[in-house]
């Protein structure tokens, strides 16, 4: 059984908050002291001025404040689209948190959250989807349960051709 609060809570804080991280050169986020007691969390930031066209793959959590066009794949990690982020891409990740703009289909094996200023034009496939009041969304949301006969096949003409996710319950 899902515990909603626990699952949603990590996204409520500032996603681009500076952690002891691997940073790209474009990210202006300050580093913290290495001696802090917090465990290391690997989050990469893509700063406001960065524009990427093509395929973006990774095995770390990623925060995007810049622009990306193409494909983003973080299969086992969390992708956060910051308030300044503008994405025109197909997105695949474990969890996707959207505060900026996304044009394209979003597939997450765990959850998708569109925050109150977030915007998505595209289809979402995820077992858990949370859309805040004030968020913009246009498209379809596929929360089909794993194993459902229709889960693997597009049900309508505009359905995205992506695999169905794994978990059953959806939180607020």
């Amino acid at each position: 059984m899902w515990k909603r609060d626990e699952a949603v809570r990590p996204a409520s804080g500032p996603p681009a908050a500076p952690q002891p991280t691997t940073q790209t050169a474009a990210s202006p986020a300050p580093r913290q002291d290495a001696g802090q007691a917090k465990p290391m969390e690997h989050t990469v930031n893509i700063g406001k001025s960065v524009v990427i066209k093509g395929e973006l793959n990774g095995s770390e959590d990623l925060t995007i404040e810049g622009q990306v066009e193409g494909t983003i794949q973080l299969r086992d990690h969390v992708l956060t689209i910051g308030a300044n982020g503008k994405i025109k891409a197909q997105v695949f990740a474990k969890a996707v948190i959207i505060q900026g703009e996304v044009v394209g289909n979003v597939t997450a094996s765990e959850r998708v959250e569109i925050k109150d200023n977030g915007s998505v034009d595209g289809d979402i496939v995820s077992p858990r989807v949370a859309i805040a009041e004030g968020a913009h969304f246009r498209g379809s949301v596929d929360m089909q349960r794993k194993g459902a006969p229709g889960a693997q096949k597009p049900a309508a003409a505009s359905a995205p051709a992506v695999a169905a996710p794994a978990v059953q319950k959806v939180g607020a």
Partner: peptide
């Protein structure tokens, strides 16, 4: 609707 039906929704 997700909890009740595990469905796909077009908006």
């Amino acid at each position: 609707f997700g909890e009740q039906l595990g469905c796909k929704i077009f908006y």
